[in-house]
Design a protein around this nucleic acid. Sequence first.
DNA 1: TAGATTGTTAATCGATTAACAATC
DNA 2: TAGATTGTTAATCGATTAACAATC
Lengths: 224, 224
Amino acid sequence: MILDTLETTKNIPAPAISRLCLIYDTCVDLEAQGVAEISSQDLAKRLGTAAHNVRKDISFLGEIGTTGAGYATFLLKDHIGKSLNINRVRKACVVGLGRLGSAVLEYPILAGRGIEIVAGFDSSTNRIETLVAKTPLYPAHEITDIVKRKEIEIGIIAVPAESAQTTADALIAGGILGILSFAPGAIDAGSSGVAVRTINLVNELRIVSALMGTNAAAGSDQQK
Amino acid sequence: MILDTLETTKNIPAPAISRLCLIYDTCVDLEAQGVAEISSQDLAKRLGTAAHNVRKDISFLGEIGTTGAGYATFLLKDHIGKSLNINRVRKACVVGLGRLGSAVLEYPILAGRGIEIVAGFDSSTNRIETLVAKTPLYPAHEITDIVKRKEIEIGIIAVPAESAQTTADALIAGGILGILSFAPGAIDAGSSGVAVRTINLVNELRIVSALMGTNAAAGSDQQK
DNA sequence: TAGATTGTTAATCGATTAACAATC
DNA sequence: TAGATTGTTAATCGATTAACAATC
């Protein structure tokens, strides 16, 4: 039975959501390759998890597979996409056009993966004028305005730590719905209800170092 | 009581390790700013967690704070650093020098944060010859050799999905101890014991989209 | 002393794993 | 039919939260 879409997302554990997004992505690839069916075991191998886990995650969304057969690639993709609302293209912008920011700005894969980057921002007018990009660029003080006008839904923050919160505030003021931040430190979304996620590159490298232990690590510990 | 350093890491939950690394980083900053003491509550605010959590995480490493007073910044940093073995500089390399890879190659902050990038690799000889970088660059087929010779401990993978596993195999053959991969898809480290972590940019954006829900997200859901 | 704050135990909450009946 | 595979319940495992005694 398919539960009410509006409600589902709330009750699904965050790690499960993360894996479901990976499964969605895998289905997109499989479809492109013309693979029409896939089993939970196969999916598990691709994600680096157990088949248990895959079936359980999928069943959070209600029944979809055919008991006894595998999952139909298209149906699975479609079902996850609708349930998690990731089956449409979202407009996004990048704030902070240093090396990392401009890499993301023109990240080639994004286009086919549900993200359309429609604007870039930087506080340096000089940089904006110098950079060659397909995407329109604007000075940082126009963030709120442009986000509102272009109805941008996702903001990607790639500015230095000091200006991360200010940037987030400007995005939120423009009505952004989600933020992905590369700045270290917590982003405070206040009571706006904006979804925030952080990628902390330095910390990820630290974690790898820690997992390596003193020298001989005890078994790969890939996070899920 | 301080537990045997060699043993500790194993018994600490992965999310706790992640937060401890963040705390370590925060202490580095605090020290630079001349702040000699900090409370669990203060740390919690900076990480975006609860004070409970901070104290619990720290106590996994054994006692260090003074009951009733806060934590001494230097001692805390030192203690976490020693316990998790993140208090020294690790040599790292970047494989794949596209936009993202070359951004990481010259990521300015890394130097002061325990990572020294000593080599870059790319399969395109042309790109290697064209790129201007402070770091020595090599063709991809020399990975195993150079990793061995330079005693590189961490490999950062920024190649397309198709070549990620091959790259990992080459790094592992060279005796790498840890891998941070930007490629989607699971990396199989076999029985090498190599620590692997993955940053999947596209998936993070998908997760943000999913958390945004249909439209009105129900409260910020920042991952810890 | 009084207020603040740590370290730790116990209780709750949540996620993963295992197992199996139902079904193709 | 027989083998394969899903969906789901129950059991285990693990992490977070709450609370409080010990201490500055």
